[in-house]
Structure formats: structure tokens, C-alpha cells
Amino acid sequence: MSVPLAAPPAVSADPGPLGRLRVLAARVGAMCLVELQKLRRDQTELLTRAIQPALWLLIFGETFTRLKAIPTGSTPYLDYLAPGILAQSALFIAIFYGIQIIWERDAGVLAKLLVTPTPRAALVAGKAFAAGVRALVQALMVLVLAAVLGVGLTANPLKLLAMAVVLVLGSAFFCCLSIVIAGIVLSRERLMGIGQAITMPLFFGSNALYPVDLMPSWLKVLSHVNPLSYQVDALRGLLIGTPAHLGLDFGVLAAATAVAISVASALLGRLAR
């Protein structure tokens, strides 16, 4: 009588670093698409958010261009201001993204996401880059308005692509910063208060409205550690051709985003408790 041989135990093949990276990228993309589906259902949100940057360009930009109160060399002040307003609009979109995370926790969605095989870093990165895509859609409206007002924007497709990367990186960083704050305070009301408290200092403590040379020494120090300053510097260099430190700007934004994703991922579990 022949005894059937036992089947050898299944050995799971290790996909290797490249395979794991591919899986991670696919899951980040899937989370990003889920986030963008929400935008398609409420398209008026972007229109209402575009009002504030439009007012900055139309009122503040036009007025200070006539006054010539802020020295910007041979660059018209409106041209100088436009990249700063682009960065501001991306900041305002991303900095309150943590409220959505708290809402998902209260609705039980976050707990369900955390028990899936998707890594926490992929969940956070998906939301972060979704914030970046939202910022790109709004940036398109700001750029159209800037062009109508006569801002001398570049038409180089490579520079416009690099501009999109800068906006996405900056938005991703501030989105993750918001998630970090949410993981610490655990409350929508506290997050709203802290978000409102840090938004204006981030904006006015950068080079978005005026050159760094005009700042007092203590504000210069804050500007050098403010990621928004590097984002504005890169946008200005790419869009209107002013001197910029593009290598440093991209490096700081990429490093800050990577660190922010790591910290936000570590705090995500605290939100679900």
C-alpha cells in the first residue's frame, strides 16, 4: 500500500526590495485616489479656497506694486509676490488636513484602515500627496489669474513640472505636520486653534511677501528653518527666473517631507486608540 507523500510546505517568495517598493507605491497611489474621489464630489471647495489667494494678488499685490514700498530689484512686486501666494494657498489647504484624520477616527474609518495590510506610512503618504494634488488644482487657478494680471511666468514645461513637484512636496510636508499635531492633541477644536495660530507665523516668517534681507535678524533665523521659505525660493526661481538655490530647496523639502511622514505614521496609532 502506497502512502501519499505530504505536500511540501509553501514557501512565500520574498518580493525583494524592488518588489516591496512597488507594492508600497501602489498602495500609496490607491490611498491618494481614494482621497481625490472626495474632491470630485465637492468641487466648490477649491473655488472657495481660491478666493483668498486671488484677493492677495488683486489687492495686496496691485497696491504694493504701485507704492513700490518693498524693494525687489528689477522684478515687479506682483511678479515677486505670485510664487509666494502659490505657496500660501498650498499651505492653507494642507495645514488643516489633520481634521479629516480626526473625523475618520470618530467615524471608525481609521481603525478599519489600520487593520488592513497597508503600511501606516502608505496611509499617511497617500493623504499627504492627495493634499499636494489638491494644491496643484488650486495653483492652476492662481497661475491663470497671475497671467491675466501680467505676471511674467515661464512657459518652459520642465520648469512647470518642477514647480508641480515643489508644490506637492510642500503640501505633503504641511499635511503631515497637521497629522502630527492631530496625533498629539487628539481633538478637532485644539487642532483648529493650533493650525490658525501657526499658519500666519509660517507665512509671514517666510520670504513669501518680502526678501529675507529686509527681515530683522531674529526673523531671518526663523526663515532659515521654515520649509515654506525653501518652497517659495524654488517656486520663484522656476516661475519668474529669479536667483534660487534649487538643489538646496528640493533637498530640504524632500528631507522634511520624509521625516514628517515617518513621525505622522508613528502617531497614527495613537489617534485610533
Score class of each variant (00 low, 15 high):
I70K: 01
D106I: 02
V109W: 13
G84R: 09
Y80Q: 06
P71D: 14
T118Y: 01
Q88H: 13
I101S: 08
R120D: 14
A90S: 15
F96M: 11
G73H: 07
A90T: 09
I99K: 13
T116A: 15
T72Q: 09
R120P: 03
A69L: 13
A94G: 12
S74G: 12
P83A: 02
V115T: 13
G98K: 05
L91K: 06
W103L: 13
Y97H: 13
E104P: 10
I102L: 15
Y77W: 12
S89I: 01
A107W: 13
L67W: 12
T72E: 03
A107R: 14
G108P: 08
Q100S: 15
E104N: 11
T116W: 06
F92G: 01
G84E: 09
S74N: 14
G84A: 05
I70G: 05
P117E: 08
T75C: 13
L78D: 04
I85R: 00
T75Q: 12
V109N: 10
A94F: 05
K68E: 15
T75K: 03
L114P: 02
I101G: 01
L86E: 00
G108N: 10
Q100R: 13
R120S: 12
R120Y: 07
E104Q: 15
G73D: 09
K112I: 00
G98V: 06
L78F: 11
F96H: 14
G98I: 04
K112P: 00
F92E: 04
A111Q: 15
D79G: 14
I102D: 02
I101A: 14
L114S: 04
A82V: 06
I99L: 15
I102A: 03
L78K: 09
P119K: 02
P76N: 11
I85M: 05
G84Y: 12
L67Q: 12
I85F: 00
T118D: 07
K68T: 05
I102C: 08
L86N: 00
T116V: 08
Q100P: 00
G73Q: 08
G108I: 12
Q88S: 05
K68F: 02
G108W: 10
L81I: 04
F92C: 00
Q88N: 12
V109L: 15
I102M: 10
